[in-house]
Design a protein around this nucleic acid. Sequence first.
DNA 1: ATGGTTGGCGCCCAA
Length: 272
Amino acid sequence: MKFATWNVNSLRARADRVEDWLDATDADVLTIQETKCRDENFPWGAFEMAGYQVAHFGYSQWNGVAIASRVGLDDVQRGFNGQPAFGKNGVDAQVEARAISAVVGTKNTDVEPFRLYSLYVPNGRSLEDEHMGYKLDFLDQLHSHITSDLDANTRVALTGDWNVAPYDEDVWDMDFFLENGMTHVSEPERRAFRQFEESGLVDVVRPRHPGPETYTYWDYQRLSFPKNTGMRIDFILASQNLAAEVTDAWIDREERKGTGPSDHVPVVAQLG
DNA sequence: ATGGTTGGCGCCCAA
């Protein structure tokens, strides 16, 4: 069973590429971030035609997360307990469409079912922006929620765009980031991310594809992809029992090429 | 100058 995560930067703009990628990769499950649409303009048909069930959480042109699965999709949860709301200057604060989870693996596979999250962690925007506080709070609350019922029997994978580069080698030039006060690499952000690893969740890709210069995202600007000035910010973190079943994992760098790519590429794990 | 953008959907914001 093969599952993947991908920030597609608008599903409507990327539907053809997503369908082509699912077909070529033969992925059983895909968690999607930045669908950038509401249910009424979600491209349901393309997934159904390809044999995938889909659960979506999106209510505006921003954010939006989904899970597509052909190995079962049960007990869908939109958001998570304790997820903080956000509104500019506290006005009209809402729980944004940044988290959805479901149990996958309930059919058409030998793998034992597990809960799979599709996460779009807020971008901090700048170190002083109120969105940075929101980002840190989001990660803290997510960590509390996940660890509240995490034990040796819990089968869970947290996947998505974490908007954090947890280690120095996860950006192309750490000195540049520090000198310019860039987000994604600050100590508070890294602490917020590392809580998950310290609680026993395992990055299943990094050991197989260590850095440096192993990235999942390249800005559209400044010829970032040809120059390989990228960041590793998309991760699959798995509970230890699930991580032990992973037989392969990789970053599909090829997907950044060609006409009309997302600025992120898929990250994939093979189970069994 | 990190020269070089993309998407939504509005005539700017988010990333």
